[in-house]
Simulated assay, not measured.
Amino acid sequence: MDVRIEYIYQTAKGVQTTFTSETMRVAKAILLAEDIEKTGRVKEITFIDDQDSTWTIKDLRKYMKGIETEAHDVTVYFDGGFDIDTYTSGLGCAIYYQQNGKSYRLRKNALVKELNTNNEAEYAALHLAIQELEFLGVHHMPVTFIGDSQVVVNQLTGDWPCVEEELNRWADRIETKLEALGITPEYRSVSRKKNREADHLASQALNETEITSTIELNQ
């Protein structure tokens, strides 16, 4: 979950003003708020999430304690590749998350043969990633999905219409799955260069190199 900090600051002479921070992850917000409190000049600190709900620092600590053993702070990179000569598709995803105070990266790819276009492959790669989130036990939290397909990202955010019947079915399938898991998605479009890891996984799948791995990352 991402939140922003709002607090009332008071000078030694009693002059007050309100500060609002940028949006950040809960763990970072708690750390900064604790440091701000040490100044002794903060009268009130509240946290506001992306649903405009307000939290106290006590509430946020309880929230973090509750999800500590679950995968959280999840970011997903996804990409799909399509070989028009063989009508095969390579799907790839890389999932970064926190669990039990540690950072992890999960990589997964798949080779599929029932798709007909590159856009379908992109949607299928995202669907593969969501399946992996379900296996991880991710539920009822925000997740950031990053891909280099403007079609997928803009259609799922509603910025572009989804008029192709097959793509519309993929979009419905994905939205239904996310709703069932209680996942609130945030979609971001990046260049292929910035999506290199997922792109490479998709290419490996097309070359029939299967990848399924999870590693702990150094902090």
Rank of each mutant, 00 (worst) to 15 (best):
K43A: 13
T212H: 15
T11I: 10
S213R: 12
D35L: 09
E216Q: 11
G90A: 01
K113Y: 12
L201I: 03
L136F: 04
T20W: 08
L133E: 10
F19D: 10
Q219D: 13
A129F: 03
Y104N: 01
D2V: 02
N168G: 13
V76Q: 09
H72V: 05
Q99P: 02
G66T: 11
V190S: 01
W170G: 01
W55N: 01
Y87K: 13
N168V: 00
P142I: 06
G80T: 07
H139W: 08
E166H: 01
L206I: 04
L136A: 02
P142A: 06
T212W: 14
L32K: 15
S89P: 07
R105P: 02
I48L: 12
K13G: 07
L217E: 14
N168P: 01
S89G: 05
E37M: 09
D35E: 14
T20S: 14
T39M: 14
D52A: 02
D159R: 12
T20R: 14
A29I: 08
D59W: 05
T23H: 13
G101R: 03
A27D: 15
T69M: 14
T75I: 11
Y87D: 08
E122D: 12
Y63C: 00
A171Q: 15
I8S: 07
D159N: 13
I183G: 02
G137W: 11
G90F: 01
T54L: 07
T214Y: 02
L181M: 12
I57M: 15
N116M: 08
A180W: 07
N119H: 15
I211H: 12
V190G: 01
G182D: 10
E175C: 01
G14N: 15
L201F: 03
T212P: 01
R107S: 11
I8F: 03
Y104T: 05
D148H: 05
H200C: 02
S103C: 07
Q131P: 02
F82T: 08
S89N: 06
S203L: 05
I48H: 03
L106K: 11
K43L: 15
S103Q: 15
A94K: 09
E197D: 12
A27E: 15
H200T: 13
K13H: 11
P185Y: 04
D50Y: 08
E70G: 00
A124I: 05
S203F: 00
